[in-house]
């Protein structure tokens, strides 16, 4: 029998894999990919909760749709920024973004 906890475990795994990508990758686009994985993990959580705990309402699914919308907006702006910076520095590595410090 597949329970809620199975889904939550998948969500948790996906979240932490995404987190690792976001924390450990040099390329800004890869960091964005990691963030997308994290958001997907949250959506699995939301939909699973919806399905197992409060099936009479679609709150979790609605929430997930909003998360998808927000994620899309974030990706759009983020990639535009990456392009902008790339044009200026010919580089999309985050390590090199340290003009602002101390």
């Amino acid at each position: 029998m597949i329970t809620l906890n199975h889904y939550l475990a998948v969500g948790g795994l996906l979240f932490c894999i995404g987190l690792f990508g976001a924390l450990a990758k040099r390329n800004a686009i890869a960091v964005l990919m990691g963030i997308e994985l994290m958001l997907n993990a949250v959506n699995i959580n939301l939909v699973a909760f919806n399905h197992f705990l409060a099936p009479d309402q679609v709150t979790g699914q609605i929430f997930a749709i909003f998360v998808i919308v927000v994620a899309a907006a974030e990706v759009a702006v983020g990639l535009a920024l990456v392009l902008n910076i790339y044009r200026r520095r010919l580089d999309s590595n985050i390590d090199d973004l340290d003009w602002l410090k101390w």
Partner: peptide, 17 residues
């Protein structure tokens, strides 16, 4: 304490998590 602020955003994120 100021030197903690390295300018690398992933270090900041690492601190947060």
């Amino acid at each position: 304490l100021r030197l903690l602020q390295t300018g690398n955003l992933q270090t900041y994120a690492l601190v947060i998590f």
